[in-house]
Simulated scan of single mutants.
Amino acid sequence: MTSTATPPGLARFNALEEHAALAALHEACASTAWARRLLAARPYATAEDLCTASDAATADLTPGDLEEAMAGHPPIGRPEPGDPASAREQRGMAGASAELRAQMLELNLAYQEKFGHVFLICATGRTGEQMRDALRERIGNPPELEREIVRTELGRINRIRLATLVQEDRT
């Protein structure tokens, strides 16, 4: 028989006071509009319901909301000091050679100059070389295409971070 009870980690998230839930969501994604939309839809019965709501909220982000979300992400190869999420997600750059780090810095700067924002990629599970190659490929995109790729990557990152947020053993 299948249990219909809400998983403990998700139940904990559902029960958080509004300000605490908003802060937790803001850690997952820096877009206030995204966080407020997810907050307004609580409680969630399953983690997949939460992720589906995240996908819908991400799809509806305005250009300004998307910029706000991207501003919460450090450049690839330079995780934010004291931010375990970005360090964990960018683990593929941890053992990168000095040459690869220099290439990423140069490419990141060129990308930022062209598009006006940080290069955003779901780095989880990717090597430094894979991220560099993706950056090389995407820097040639027109802005409209790149904005949609960024939205897709943000959605992937949000799903991973939400899964971490509602883990059962999170303290």
Results as ranks from 00 to 15, higher is better:
Glu27Gln: 14
Leu105Phe: 07
Gly9Phe: 04
Ala134Gly: 06
Ala96Arg: 00
Leu105Arg: 12
Glu144Gly: 00
Leu25Trp: 09
Asn141Ser: 13
Arg138Ile: 10
Asp133Tyr: 03
Met1Cys: 07
Glu146Val: 01
Glu148Ser: 00
Glu148Thr: 05
Gly72Asn: 09
Leu105Val: 14
Asp49Ser: 05
Pro74Val: 02
Gly95Arg: 15
Ser3Thr: 12
Ala98Asp: 13
Ala56Phe: 00
Ser31Arg: 01
Gln103Thr: 12
Ala59Thr: 11
Ala28Arg: 07
Met93Asn: 02
Leu38Val: 06
Asp83Glu: 07
Thr32His: 13
Ala98Tyr: 01
Val150Phe: 04
Ala134Glu: 08
Arg42Asp: 10
Ser86Met: 06
Gly128Glu: 07
Ala59Gln: 14
Arg147Asn: 05
Met1Ile: 07
Leu10Trp: 08
His19Asp: 15
Pro7Gly: 04
Gly116Ser: 11
Ala20Gly: 04
Glu17Ser: 01
Arg78Lys: 13
Tyr44Lys: 04
Gly125Asn: 07
Met1His: 06
Glu80Leu: 15
Cys29His: 07
Thr164Asp: 10
Leu22Ile: 08
Arg126Lys: 15
Glu48Ala: 08
Asp169Pro: 02
Glu148Leu: 02
Gly140Thr: 11
Thr171Leu: 11
Arg78Phe: 11
Ser3Arg: 11
Arg170Phe: 05
Met93Ala: 13
Glu18Asp: 11
